[in-house]
Design a protein around this nucleic acid. Structure first.
Lengths: 332, 332
DNA sequence: ATTATTTTTGCAACCGGTTGCAAAAGGCGA
DNA sequence: TCGCCTTTTGCAACCGGTTGCAAAAATAAT
């Protein structure tokens, strides 16, 4: 078993409080005492039990990191950034993988049982109601990549998906495409819905366009490929705004199979700007989502909330931008 | 603040022990008592504090999940499998991202401070010594994707990389390639070293071959592409065994740029069989690593160790197999 | 040197649970 | 109804720390 406070105290010949104080900064300890205790602690190989202390301090430095996106490579980057960022601030991510089978309520309860100091929900598909459950349970929460709302109930950090939709539409129109389609991700995802509405509201402002839409059932290569193979059978559009980059790559693969060429025959624009998008054999024109900024900002917000749990909910929205590569024909 | 045991006890008009007992299974409580307590608990919205109980039981159900592979998409799948598998057994993954800057010793200490019940090291590049630090600290540890050793000091679950090297060599020779090269991952990674030695020991058994080798400095697209662009400048081999699939994809991209064709001009075989390898526009012949089995087995081993911490260290090695796709010329 | 003031230290209670032990309650046969 | 055995319950100590408070020690002021 591990060494305890008491053993260190005995060896150093001081009280337990003295030992506790040398290990909590901001406490009053004389230099002499500190040296004595530290020596004893070193001899014994003592390190304080974080859980025991959390019992009285009420802080665990544990942060629940909840996501349901364990299949989209972009989330590996998200996890990388989150874990590093949290670690750098002395916080510990307790990871929760929310699948269709797991009961969301059970996750909330479990995180409360572990007295997490806060929770980060990292998902573009979960409804706002999910994160609200944490707030209702008194757990500070920020929803990263969540749906933008002008009256957010919880802290949201992400992008304006409606504006992304508009941006994609503007770009396609500017390139002279007239027959334009939306190939979204899962229809129920909030991000899909918002992009859809932005996309078509912008297209509605232009005359003489032919538009259509469909949805893939996941943000995945296979779903994109399958849907595109299907679309290619009838009368494909001139350009597609795809739900995300992985989906786009599936779409590109389907197009290549059909013998058509990108961007000559069909234009594609994705969303996310994942690392793979700039791989030379993919070279996807896409909308860049500032992941790093979103994560950094989420963490900052989380840290701020630890000191001020009842902070008034805010939405932090970061602008996206088009990254020009090779899957749209150039503006003439 | 959250509801405590004491409050429930008072409301139900029973002792604190009674409440505690109704929430720990295997304890002796009468039906009547259980109902009374559960009612009170429900009314108050009580749920027991896992950390407080861990103090006396000595179990936290926390498992450290340590990795330094936050850039290889295959690890997203690994994390997915680990988190789901642990969750299903009521265990909680505490994620540690081991970067070059983070001090390994500090991570060990930190996990001990949080009294994790065990630690899973998921990495093919970390040296065996790393996981040993956990064992020395009295923390049950499993090294997944670790180096195979006939006398392991800690539990290892993974593949036999030496054998994988041999398998790749045999395959290339069988396809009639005579000028064969090894394009490894990071030179210091144990997996690279083992594959190298297996590969060349097998090639050594054949006459009339020309061989060469080089290393990419990371398991990444860019590193593979860069190295291959370099190799293409002089006199490339007929076939390459690449360190992993991402690397292979970079290599394929470089070859495509140079105007050469795969598999007609150059053959490529990767390792891992990540999801992307079967994407139709990549279609990579590769060695399948049974990730799912490795993770499942690691978790089982971990669970077993929770009951039997001093279990004698074992190595669990899973066989790999060639997955035939389109980047090697067919056997004639 | 004496007193006033500040700093350091130890005591003891507490955080939210668990558990060995003995007393109380319940069940059973006579 | 009584005695005996089993089950249920509460008491109190404990897990490994923290912290308010008052006593003790060190330092400053007179």
């Amino acid at each position: 078993m591990a060494i305890t406070l008491k053993e260190v105290a005995e060896r150093a010949g001081v009280s337990r409080s003295a030992v506790s104080r040398t290990f909590t900064d901001g406490a009053s300890v004389s230099e002499k005492m500190r040296r004595k205790v530290e020596k004893a602690a070193r001899d014994l190989g003592y390190s304080p039990n974080a859980l025991a202390s959390s019992l009285t301090t009420g802080r665990t430095k544990l942060i629940g990191l909840i996501s349901n996106n364990f299949h989209n490579p972009i989330f590996l980057e998200v996890f990388d950034l989150f874990t590093r960022g949290l670690q750098d601030r002395g916080l510990r991510p307790l990871l929760v993988n929310l699948t269709d089978e797991t009961d969301p309520q059970a996750s909330v309860r479990m995180l409360r049982q572990y007295s997490v100091d806060g929770a980060v929900v990292a998902s573009s598909t979960l409804p706002p109601g999910f994160s609200k459950a944490f707030r209702d349970a008194g757990v500070p929460v920020v929803h990263s990549f969540g749906r933008y709302s002008s009256a957010p109930q919880v802290h949201v950090v992400g992008i304006d998906n409606v504006e992304c939709g508009r941006m994609a539409a503007r770009t396609l129109v500017a390139r002279g495409y007239r027959k334009i389609a939306f190939l979204g991700g899962p229809e129920r995802a909030t991000s899909t819905q918002d992009r859809y509405s932005g996309f078509f509201s912008e297209l509605g402002a232009h005359r003489g366009l032919t538009t259509s839409y469909s949805f893939a059932d996941a943000y995945s290569f296979d779903a994109g490929r399958r849907e595109m193979l299907h679309l290619l059978k009838s009368d494909p559009a001139e350009a597609y705004f795809c739900g995300d980059d992985v989906l786009s790559i599936g779409v590109l693969s389907a197009i290549a199979d059909s013998g058509l060429r990108v961007p000559e025959d069909i234009g594609i624009i994705g969303l996310n700007d994942m690392e793979m998008a700039r791989w030379e054999n993919i070279n996807l024109t896409t909308i860049h989502q500032p992941i790093r900024q979103i994560v950094t900002s989420s963490i900052e917000l989380m840290v701020a909330m630890l000191d001020e749990p009842d902070r008034y909910p805010e939405a932090r929205i970061f602008p996206c931008s088009i990254v020009e590569r090779g899957t749209l024909r150039p503006a003439k």
